[in-house]
């Protein structure tokens, strides 16, 4: 009897892993294609793309495309710009949106239901529809910097960061998460003398690991993949992010090998960030201290 159960369990486990492996393969094939293609000359890349050879490191393999990509565009600068813009936006967004979520979910104030509705309504507005008004506003906004008062935010990092710090989806994620945290924990902290800031910083945020990881991944992907907005507001090479840099490779005769090499390089930070947060996500699933 026990043996049969054991065999059934093993079979079930095998089938489960088989299905998961197949799904993983479907998702990983484009990445393998990209990396393999980045190692091949453009001619061979086009020939291989019709067969399974496209996914294998066969033929004339070299890192020539990478060297050429570096010659064609300041890859390091673009990656650094993107990481700076994305990093600052993600951190500022997590902080501000979690505070907004805390305020809406935990504090009692008049009109918060209306404010939440208004925030949720922004989710239905595509960025493209507000891009032009936002561009006009950004071009005239003042800023007090190192050189005193300036007018206009174009060709800066801040124009690529500040408009994206607060967003409806991140606020909504935090609102939902904080609402699900047992009210008793908040009240226990209050009864122990904690201020609202201490409730937020010492009780709720340490328990919000999963939602912080989720919100960070979503925000990172949105920011790292920014294309339209930086194209509109940045003309100087020094402030360009990675995706705008892709333009350097699309000319009369597109060098697909170099494109693939560039894409492979700019994909690395995304993968590292995702894998890092995925671990944090699993590690931060805290057991509840409230008996249900």
């Amino acid at each position: 009897m026990t043996q049969t159960y054991l065999n059934n369990d093993r079979l079930r486990l095998f089938v489960r892993y088989l299905v998961l492996t197949l799904i993983a393969a479907i998702f990983i094939f484009p990445l393998v294609f990209m990396v393999m293609s980045s190692l091949k000359p453009s001619q061979q890349l086009l020939i291989d793309s019709g067969s399974l050879r496209a996914f294998l490191p066969v033929g004339d393999i070299s890192f020539d495309n990478y060297a050429a990509a570096f010659r064609r565009a300041p890859v390091g600068l673009f990656v650094a710009n993107s990481l700076l813009i994305t990093g600052v936006t993600v951190i500022a967004s997590l902080f501000l949106c979690s505070l907004a979520g805390f305020s809406i979910a935990i504090l009692n104030w008049r009109g918060k239901a209306f404010v939440l509705s208004a925030i949720l309504a922004t989710l239905t507005v595509p960025f493209e529809t507000i891009a032009v008004p936002l561009l006009l506003m950004s071009s005239k906004l003042p800023w007090i910097g190192m050189e005193g008062l300036e007018l206009g935010w174009l060709n800066t990092y801040r124009v690529q960061i500040i408009p994206f710090i607060a967003d409806g989806l991140t606020i909504f994620l935090f609102v939902q998460y904080f609402r699900d945290i047992p009210k008793d924990l908040v009240e226990a902290a209050r009864a122990e003398g904690a201020s609202w800031w201490q409730v937020y910083s010492k009780v709720l945020m340490p328990l919000a690991g999963p939602i912080i990881a989720t919100a960070a991944i979503l925000k990172f992907l949105v920011m790292y993949n920014q294309y339209l907005w930086p194209l509109m507001v940045v003309q100087e090479e020094g402030y360009r992010p990675v995706l705008v840099g892709l333009q350097y490779f699309f000319q009369l005769n597109t060098a697909w090998g170099e494109v693939m090499a560039y894409l492979s390089m700019i994909t690395v930070p995304v993968l590292v960030f995702y894998l890092f947060l995925q671990r944090a996500f699993i590690a931060s699933i805290a057991s509840t201290g409230v008996k249900g």
Partner: peptide, 20 residues
């Protein structure tokens, strides 16, 4: 007065101890 200034301590039905 807020709870912290009342010199009271409360024990909850759900324990409400901090899991982290």
């Amino acid at each position: 007065l807020p709870p912290k200034d009342r010199s009271v301590a409360m024990v909850f039905q759900s324990y409400a101890i901090f899991p982290h």
